[in-house]
Design a binder for these strands. Structure first.
Lengths: 331, 331
DNA sequence: CTGTTAGCGCTTTCAC
DNA sequence: GTGAAAGCGCTAACAG
């Protein structure tokens, strides 16, 4: 490995001069400068960022830690990148593969120490696990669960969104609406919040929230969502609306409905959550809840910088509003 | 910031002992060990990874640099992560926003020095720009362009895939097949290779490769692809097949065809390239070329480790075969 | 304009 | 089983 001293020796100057040439920090005589650059070139020198970061006490890098690289998280990551870069930091993405162990490892593990700050979209950790996390580096939690007070946190208005989507389908005539991908019972999962919103909309309309209409889907995958939708149809349970907890589930449901010859939106209306780009280009285009990636990203990055500037500032909890995008899968 | 010396002082030991306790490198007397761990806990110490990496001369991290976080790249990144992690490294994802400047910055810029190795999926750089890149760190180029000999490189069999998809539609009766998203003329873009495959299939079948059927799409976005497809339909050009250069383009084309009342696959067959997960769940499911993410990831990681082990090993160029996945958008 | 010194936080090496 | 010294590659601070 060629170091700065190698370059300095080759150019007949001190390492400081090399440093000053490369960083344009202090003026260097043109002749010296040329000699240094020539040595850099001929030796193929590239600065060791690790050493530089150690010296600087910062890395200039922010990490976004997500359960997967797909769908909602792609779009979120893109929004966060667009928010981070103008502020002069770099964004890197890491995935946890959605297991609690990985998330704990990501966040309590030492790797976090590589970054100036971390934005973490948690799905696998419960409140107690989150509570065990120290907070030596600025960290902002993203997502739907409720989290310990001491963490900065950005969440979506999940209940609102679910209520809006469900109410919209009720208004357009649906009476038997599935909560596809929802989790029954208590809990702090994103899907719990969304199921509660679904219930509220039904209750507001004087409709029953029948347990049989709450259909859990283990991993939120296309495969399992399709299978779940098919088995509901085949069970004969009357359904004239589907509120899917995610757009992935909604898209799989559209496919399953089509396979069974049910027309959307005529026989069954469908609404999703996430407003994935692809949904806007399906025939028919998917009605969905827009989670406001830009606002989430903006708030998350704002909270992170606030904490990077002042580690002792009081934690802030932000809830970002969502909006309903009405398209072709509802009437 | 609390450092190892702080912990050592609090525990009444040397930093070496703290290091040994934390890394379990050498045995430490149980009593000492307990005292150290207690100090770590009470001071909230976390090890500085940057210092550790500087000392170790490696970071244990591999970067995958991609033009965007979406679609093909999501799926690729997932496959690469699954390949990298079992080998004991971490994967981070960075995006270049698909501009040549960003790609140059990513790869010649100093940031690269943060990683033990880099896998870069290049789209914006031409051969000459790539040639200006030094190669101080192990780097594997991914993607469709042809690249300077000295780089390790993994590419797809783009021509083969395009030929297979087009030939399949010809076999099933299409005669006027669009190359949607292709670039006319010479060049080393992915879309050039795929257009050439389209031409070959037509030629093999004794059909003309009419220039009017080559339809460029600036940014490969859903929006532009939909607009391009609509304007082709409205122009009255007879079309009974669409070979889309990417699945994103194919999905947008499906939407546009539907908007104009054309039936798929009865009136028009459609085939894409990338085999995105979502395509398998559309009604009808999208026929596409499976780019073999697992094989690409496996080869890329293999080449990278090979070069990390021996920086002087001769560069290797690998072409990964693709396969046709026939589904509902072709007959 | 350029150089010397000291040290970022950690671990290897050598000593006891 | 534990510690002291040296140094990874870089740069701030202070000379000159």
């Amino acid at each position: 490995m060629v170091t700065m001293s190698d370059v300095a020796r080759a150019a007949g100057v001190s390492t400081m001069t090399v440093s000053n040439v490369l960083n344009e920090r202090r003026p260097v005589a043109p002749a010296t400068r040329e000699r240094v650059l020539a040595s850099v070139e001929s030796l193929g020198y590239e600065m060791n960022q690790t050493a530089r970061n150690l010296r600087a006490g910062r890395t200039g890098t922010i990490a976004l830690i997500v359960p997967s690289f797909f769908d909602y998280y792609s779009e979120l990551a893109d929004a966060v990148a667009r928010e981070v870069e103008p502020r002069g930091s770099h964004l890197v993405l890491e995935r946890t593969a959605a297991t609690a162990e990985h998330e704990m490892a990501s966040v309590s593990g030492a790797r976090l120490q590589l970054y100036d700050g971390v934005i973490m979209s948690s799905v696998g950790l419960d409140r107690e696990q989150l509570d065990r996390i120290r907070r030596p580096k600025p960290i902002v939690l993203l997502g739907e669960r409720d989290v310990p007070e001491r963490f900065d946190h950005v969440r979506l208005a999940n209940e609102d969104g679910a209520r809006m989507a469900t109410a919209h389908m009720i208004e357009r005539g649906s009476r038997r609406i599935l909560a596809l991908g929802a989790t029954p019972g208590d809990g702090h999962a994103m899907t719990t919040d969304r199921r509660v919103g679904w219930e509220q909309a039904l209750r507001d309309a004087g409709l029953p929230a029948d347990e049989r209409y709450v259909v859990p889907i283990g991993d939120y995958s296309f495969e399992n969502a399709r299978a779940a939708m098919l088995s509901i149809i085949d069970s004969g349970l009357p359904v004239d609306g589907v509120f899917a907890m995610t757009d992935v589930i909604a898209i799989a449901a559209l496919g399953a409905l089509h396979e069974r010859g049910l027309r959307v939106p005529d026989d069954v209306q469908v609404a999703g959550f996430d407003d994935l780009k692809v949904g806007r280009f399906l025939p028919p285009a998917l009605t969905s809840i827009d989670p406001g990636h830009e606002a989430v990203a903006r708030e998350a990055v704002r909270l992170l910088h606030r904490r990077m500037d002042d580690p002792e500032v009081a934690a802030e909890h932000v809830s970002v509003p969502v909006t309903l995008s009405v398209r072709g899968t509802t009437r």
